[in-house]
Amino acid sequence: MTDQDIKNVILEIVADIAPDADLSDIKPDIRLREQIELDSMDFLDIVMELRKRYAIDVPEDDYMKLSTLNGCVEYLRPHLKNR
């Protein structure tokens, strides 16, 4: 997967979790929760989807690393680059 593919994956997951949100103008370096309505239960949904789709287990200590779109790409790149 390219970085753009990873971004698309995250946006697809977020679109499912926050179906009313407008994702067309998400800033990659600003926390997702500051841009759209996402609470801690929603965030756990992102973690669950990564587990279900790609068998990636994100330990709680790493949750903060997923707070922005670019953070997600950085974090997931090693897991997804060969997929």
Partner: peptide
């Protein structure tokens, strides 16, 4: 309700 409410 919003779509998100239905999901939740």
């Amino acid at each position: 309700q919003k779509k998100k409410d239905l999901r939740r």
